[in-house]
């Protein structure tokens, strides 16, 4: 099939970007979306043009690198997948596809479709851990029993891949789903209890500092989340935050 692509091109963080139009022919339904971009880039290179830069790495939906806004939606038209798992059979011959970077003040564009998501790292650094030494003198793993439901729930929260689709989808560019997933993982486990208050206060504080918007519960984040992180996490972070604020 043949496609018309409208791709955001921006030379660097300071430059003013714009949508450029490209044609790709010989697109095969079995190709992944990123492989389709590989084909475009091969063409561009052979014709002496600069290829389109985009983030990608594992190409199996787990590293969270790929981050494209495709036709107005993060990771494209299908639910519960990342861009690298989107296949071209989801498009039709002759389609026009608009490809843009994630848009958020906290995710500035570095080049073309590549954005800087280190704000997520800084939120994690503010408290997304349990302060336990890695020296090997910890107690036996089975001496901390965890109810299976809690463990499963914590796991579900922990499957967040940090791709940023939640921020990209949210009309407020809010990072609440991301932050709440991490807070939830530890809030649900007995190991995380000791530092629960400090963790939630510090992480929310950092989240605000990074310039993300506030949550207005539109639910867009959870619909676009490739890992199906649930909105319950957001209720939980709100609860944890209030608890921590009241306790002081």
């Amino acid at each position: 099939m043949k496609l018309t692509l409208k791709i955001w091109r921006q030379k660097n963080a300071q430059a003013k970007g714009s949508l450029e139009t490209y044609q790709v022919n010989d697109v095969d339904g079995d190709m992944s979306f990123l492989e389709m971009l590989d084909v475009l880039n091969a063409d561009l290179i052979e014709n002496g043009q600069d290829p389109v830069e985009f983030d990608h790495d594992c190409r199996e939906g787990i590293c969270g690198s790929c981050s494209l806004q495709i036709n107005g939606r993060p990771h494209g038209p299908k639910r519960h997948i990342t861009t690298c798992q989107l296949h071209m059979r989801s498009f039709n011959d002759g389609d026009t596809v608009v490809i843009e970077p994630w848009r958020a003040k906290a995710f500035p564009v570095i080049k073309d479709l590549v954005v800087d998501r280190t704000a997520f790292d800084r939120i994690q650094q503010a408290g997304g851990y349990i302060s336990v030494n890695t020296s090997g003198n910890t107690i036996d793993a089975n001496s901390i029993p965890v109810e299976k439901d809690d463990a499963d729930e914590a796991f579900n929260s922990a499957t967040c891949i940090g791709c940023g689709a939640c921020v990209a989808a949210c009309k407020n560019a809010s990072a609440m789903l991301f932050t709440s997933a991490k807070v939830s993982q530890f809030a649900l486990l007995p190991q995380g209890e000791v530092e629960a208050s400090r963790r939630v206060l510090n992480m929310v504080n950092q989240m605000d500092k990074e310039g993300f918007g506030a949550c207005s519960n539109t639910g867009a984040c959870y619909i676009e989340c490739p890992k199906d992180i649930s909105l319950e996490n957001i209720a939980r972070i709100n609860r944890e935050y209030l608890k921590a604020s009241v306790e002081g």
Partner: peptide
């Protein structure tokens, strides 16, 4: 404040695909 969290808006944005008009 929320508008400030997205300085550059999308050229194409399909909010209706993932959230209600009311929200």
């Amino acid at each position: 404040k929320n508008n400030r969290a997205r300085v550059h808006s999308y050229k194409k944005y399909r909010g209706s695909a993932n959230s209600s008009w009311a929200s």
